[in-house]
């Protein structure tokens, strides 16, 4: 079964229709825990993108060779390998950013989204499709993280990417880690609202 979507559609699908954070409600831990700034979102997004793309490609390449009975262990091993690699690379070359993300880079290994994509997509599709699907999912995660980071950084610190745009701090509360819960909840509600309005306009 091959998908009939084009590469671009696959990427857009990951960012919008099946956005891992806002649509699939998966991999929420970093979305709450370290989405305090846009930069954090980008950094972890890059890590997830790397792991997703490499795992998808690996599985897609060897899909005919994987014994169906050890399917899941093979996925886990593949993901864990790439997570270890990106973990070591970040720790070595970007120690400051790595320190901010703490344990979350290692925890990518337990992200349901990656295993799910391997099982549902990469194990059935060819390399090119899997690659673009991986890119789409990774970017979708990154965009979601950046969106939350954008709201929290703007409201909490009055800055974007470290640049002062407001000149004051409107709501310091949003920079507290636990405000992630409120922020994600409110944003999800907001998107739902927009969607229902949009549908209603379209129908009527």
């Amino acid at each position: 079964m091959a998908t009939d979507k084009s590469n671009l559609q696959l990427v857009v699908n990951g960012i919008l229709n099946e956005n891992p954070i806002f649509r699939l409600v998966l991999s929420m831990c970093p979305a709450v825990g370290i989405s305090t700034t846009v930069m954090n979102g980008i950094m972890l997004g890059v890590a997830v993108l790397f792991v997703q793309v490499f795992s998808s490609c690996t599985i897609s390449l060897v899909k005919n060779w994987i014994h169906p009975r050890i399917r899941i262990p093979t996925y886990t091993l593949t993901i864990a390998t790439w997570v270890t690699v990106i973990d070591m690379v970040l720790a070595a070359y970007l120690p400051e950013a790595y320190a901010k993300m703490g344990i979350f880079v290692k925890l990518i290994v337990a992200f349901a989204i990656i295993t799910m994509r391997l099982e549902m997509f990469a194990s059935k599709e060819n390399l090119t499709h899997s690659f673009w699907d991986g890119v789409g999912m990774g970017l979708g995660f990154m965009v979601g993280m950046m969106a939350i980071g954008f709201v929290r950084e703007l409201l909490g610190l009055g800055t974007i990417l470290g640049y002062d745009v407001l000149g004051f701090r409107p709501l310091l509360f949003f920079i507290l880690p636990l405000a992630g819960f409120f922020c994600v909840g409110l944003m999800m509600g907001f998107f739902n609202y927009i969607e229902t309005r949009y549908k209603r306009v379209k129908q009527g």
């Binding site: 409600v25 909840g185 509600g189 739902n192």
Partner: peptide, 12 residues
């Protein structure tokens, strides 16, 4: 509120 039913309100 309708848009908040389910997961969004759970987050809050």
């Amino acid at each position: 509120p309708k848009s908040f039913k389910g997961v969004p309100i759970a987050f809050i």
